[in-house]
Measured scan of single mutants.
Amino acid sequence: MATVKFKYKGEEKEVDISKIKKVWRVGKMISFTWDEGGGKTGRGAVSEKDAPKELLQMLEKQ
Rank of each mutant, 00 (worst) to 15 (best):
M1R: 10
M1P: 06
M1E: 15
A2P: 14
A2Q: 14
A2D: 05
T3L: 07
T3A: 03
T3V: 09
T3P: 02
V4T: 01
V4S: 00
K5N: 03
K5C: 04
K5F: 03
F6R: 00
F6M: 01
K7M: 13
Y8M: 03
Y8L: 04
Y8R: 02
K9Q: 07
K9W: 07
K9L: 08
K9F: 13
G10A: 03
G10V: 01
E11H: 12
E11K: 10
K13N: 03
K13E: 03
K13A: 05
K13I: 14
K13Q: 11
E14R: 05
V15G: 01
V15Q: 02
D16V: 09
D16W: 08
I17N: 02
I17T: 09
I17S: 03
I17G: 02
I17Y: 01
I17W: 01
S18E: 07
S18T: 05
S18Q: 11
K19M: 12
K19R: 03
I20Q: 00
I20D: 00
K22G: 08
K22F: 07
K22P: 01
V23G: 03
V23D: 00
W24N: 10
W24R: 03
W24C: 15
R25F: 07
R25H: 09
R25E: 06
V26K: 13
G27N: 06
G27T: 11
G27Q: 13
G27C: 13
K28I: 04
K28D: 14
K28C: 15
K28E: 15
M29P: 03
M29V: 13
M29G: 13
I30E: 00
I30L: 06
S31A: 03
S31Y: 08
S31T: 07
S31I: 08
F32W: 02
F32P: 00
F32H: 00
F32R: 00
F32A: 13
T33Q: 09
T33F: 05
T33W: 04
T33P: 00
W34V: 02
W34Q: 00
W34H: 08
W34T: 01
D35N: 12
D35M: 11
D35K: 03
E36K: 06
G37S: 13
G37H: 10
G37D: 14
G37L: 15
G38Y: 12
G38F: 08
G38Q: 09
G39C: 15
K40S: 09
K40T: 10
K40N: 11
K40I: 15
K40Y: 15
K40P: 13
T41G: 14
T41E: 13
T41V: 11
G42S: 13
G42R: 10
G42V: 11
R43P: 14
G44A: 13
G44E: 04
G44S: 13
A45F: 05
A45V: 06
A45N: 15
A45Y: 04
V46C: 05
S47D: 13
S47K: 13
E48H: 04
K49P: 08
K49F: 11
K49I: 15
D50N: 06
D50G: 04
D50P: 02
D50S: 12
D50I: 07
D50C: 14
A51R: 01
K53A: 10
K53V: 12
K53Q: 10
E54P: 13
L55R: 00
L55E: 00
L55H: 00
L55F: 05
L55Y: 01
Q57Y: 10
Q57M: 09
Q57C: 13
M58Q: 07
L59C: 10
L59W: 03
L59N: 02
L59R: 01
E60G: 02
E60T: 04
E60V: 08
E60I: 10
K61T: 12
K61C: 15
K61W: 04
K61M: 12
Q62R: 00
Q62M: 09
Q62N: 07
